[in-house]
């Protein structure tokens, strides 16, 4: 694929978007895991939510 004289700019912008998007997704997934783990740990300690889940 020949992107002409400005190929570096095109690749750089796609790379920046890719890195940011993947970073966001990884952060979201890791954050989800952490909250899940915390919630499970609390429930194992016997702390229950008063409202039914």
């Amino acid at each position: 694929m020949d992107l002409g004289p400005h190929a570096a700019f095109i690749w750089l912008s796609y790379a920046a978007v890719t890195v940011t998007v993947i970073g966001l997704i990884m952060w979201l997934i890791a954050d989800g895991w952490r909250q899940r783990a915390d919630l499970d740990a609390l429930e194992r300690q016997g702390v229950k939510r008063r409202s039914s889940n």
Partner: peptide, 23 residues
Amino acid sequence: AMHLKAMRNEILRRRVKALRAQA
């Protein structure tokens, strides 16, 4: 998709916080 996931995380975070306070 990201927004839904972030909202789910936030709800879980608030549950954890509420449970800790309750404990």
